[in-house]
Design a protein around this nucleic acid. Sequence first.
DNA 1: CTTATTTATGTAGTTAACTACATAAATGTA
DNA 2: TACATTTATGTAGTTAACTACATAAATAAG
Lengths: 167, 167
Amino acid sequence: METEQDFVSELGYLSLAVRLKRISDQMMHGARQVYKQYGLDIEPNWYLIFKLLQKRNCLSITQIGDELHFSHPSVISIVRKMRDKGFLTCTVDKADSRRQLVQLSKKALTELPQLEAFWQAGERSIAGLFEHNDDFLKKLDRLEKQYQRADFMTRTLNELNNEEQHT
Amino acid sequence: METEQDFVSELGYLSLAVRLKRISDQMMHGARQVYKQYGLDIEPNWYLIFKLLQKRNCLSITQIGDELHFSHPSVISIVRKMRDKGFLTCTVDKADSRRQLVQLSKKALTELPQLEAFWQAGERSIAGLFEHNDDFLKKLDRLEKQYQRADFMTRTLNELNNEEQHT
DNA sequence: CTTATTTATGTAGTTAACTACATAAATGTA
DNA sequence: TACATTTATGTAGTTAACTACATAAATAAG
């Protein structure tokens, strides 16, 4: 009755990083396929910026990075692509000429309702993978908070030192 | 009493992909730092190949990819780096001249016990992020199996069609 | 036994994130 | 007010995975 176990999942927590990356990549790739199939000229993670600016109206590059927990170079590259496709307008802040103020364009506001339908379908399709009342997202919150307290290197070095004390 | 919620986690399942990728990247980055700190000349995901060959002794590129659920180009690139560092030996299969037989080198066998200590510390450091008797890995198994049945695009297109039927 | 199909490996180019460094503007301090 | 520090953005280069296409060997089919 013992089912043939998968080698990677046999490795337990050790293979967590590679498994999480794989699932994430699959979702991202799937999203790209959906957009392509429907001829939508957007990319997978743009929804983060769309939704953030819908809520906050007008933000700088750094503010966007802080809210989304992205490095600023990542934000620059996403914002630039979205601007080139006409979804964002960027203007220099009059009070501080270093800052870019990023806003949704008219085109974005017009197309947002249509895009929402896709995002909601995507959300439902992921939610459907979990059981009703699943606490996966809560566990994820917890995991993220733990990493804010101490990163992987720190934790691993601690474990190495603990081991040495035992031997 | 309401704590200031994080924008990304407010998005629910929709932001799952980006959150999983972020955690995975952090772990990978941390591992690279640990190796660097201890002057170990290996890279984060090599342990998958080390451990697989420890168990299976001698495998081809394609077999490795199948076991680890990696594409064969990924395996080629990892194996090549490990071989260049002297951890693997590659020989052409006499029965089938297309195949590469990949094995652990003497150097690998000598160094494995030392590397094991790091991997075990890494494993403990991740396990420590979860509560005792946590079922996170089981949920992950389930998630992966669901995706083997139907990928993200298929699921999302289904949801889009369901929605259309309601309107 | 020749041709078609499948399998194994290899190559090229893409992805979305990152770090490290560079520059320039704003702010704080002596 | 000059100089030092901090902040905002920009650039370059790296990462680990992927897909799509290319080639060559082995196997199957007629």
